[in-house]
């Protein structure tokens, strides 16, 4: 055989093997030696079963609270459907599951908190191993000259995420993580903003008031202190705004969300 047809032949073998593992196609069976005690089909099934188990375990490892809420059996059924629809393509199994919230929305349209919880746990995981950056101390604000304040901008830690949650999924997550009975899952009439970030090695989260949520959107988009004050005018009296803005900034610095001031 030529080198080209050899390679093609290996490629065909691997494709057939993979089709068996993923979809149960049986063309590979003839290419495999079996024995009386352990026939070829049983040998091949070790691979197809291990494939599903490993990916299900990976999903459970990234989304443990979703598994708790669904129960192991239903979680395994969802995982099985996901594995069929969205095979992994990433070298690290850590990234398997990113499309699961979309599947949950489709499978459980009347229980939107399931997709919400999956998206929430995915975001928590992203903060856990997201990029590192050195937070600035409060002295960085003290060092700014008064005339520089209006044009001052702030760089946020790369793990900072703001999520508009349409259900009480973060409260479900919080209770389940603390091994407490979760509240009744509910869909919200108005979305609630939540903040996720990492403080050194500790993943943190808290709910956001509408003014802080709007303030964060402006400032994470590169807005200046002056723009921060402008947006806060939508919620507060003009004379209270500078103190409100300073208070928010101080909180973000104390919570180690600010990594640069310029």
């Amino acid at each position: 055989m030529s080198a080209q047809s050899d390679a093609h032949s290996l490629a065909e073998l691997q494709r057939d093997f993979q089709r068996h593992v993923m979809h149960g196609h049986d063309r590979i069976v003839d290419a495999v030696d079996g024995s009386a005690a352990v026939p070829a089909t049983l040998r091949l099934s070790i691979y197809s079963e291990a494939y599903r188990l490993r990916l299900t375990d990976a999903l459970a490892s990234t989304l443990p609270r979703l598994q708790q809420l669904l129960g192991e059996e239903q979680f395994a059924a969802v995982a099985s459907e996901y594995i069929e629809l969205c095979p992994s393509s990433h070298p690290s199994i850590r990234w398997f599951g990113d499309q699961l919230p979309a599947l949950l929305t489709k499978l459980f349209p009347d229980q939107p908190w399931l997709a919400g919880l999956a998206a929430w746990e995915w975001a928590i995981a992203a903060a856990f191993d997201g990029a590192d950056a050195q937070a600035v101390g409060i002295e960085a604000l003290a060092a700014v000259a008064p005339e520089q304040w209006p044009s001052l901008t702030f760089q946020f830690h790369p793990t900072v995420q703001v999520l508009a949650m349409h259900t009480n999924a973060p409260l479900l997550f919080k209770a389940l993580s603390a091994d407490e009975p979760p509240p009744e899952p509910v869909a919200l009439e108005q979305p609630q903003s939540w903040l996720i970030w990492r403080e050194q090695l500790k993943t943190q989260y808290r709910s956001l008031s509408p003014d802080e949520s709007a303030a964060l959107a402006v400032m994470r988009g590169g807005g200046s202190f002056e723009m921060l004050c402008d947006v806060l005018c939508n919620w507060h009296d003009a004379e209270a705004v500078p103190a409100q803005a300073a208070g928010l900034l101080k909180r973000w610095v104390v919570e180690q969300m600010i990594v640069g001031v310029s």
Binding site: L10, A11, L13, Q14, R15, F17, Q18, V21, M22, Y47, A50, Y51, R54, L55, A58, P87, S88, S89, H90, P91, I93, F96
Partner: peptide
């Protein structure tokens, strides 16, 4: 894996 898929398992070679 082949065709861009990662089966996350150690598959045998001929």
């Amino acid at each position: 894996g082949v065709d861009g898929v990662n089966l996350h398992d150690l598959m045998p070679l001929p």
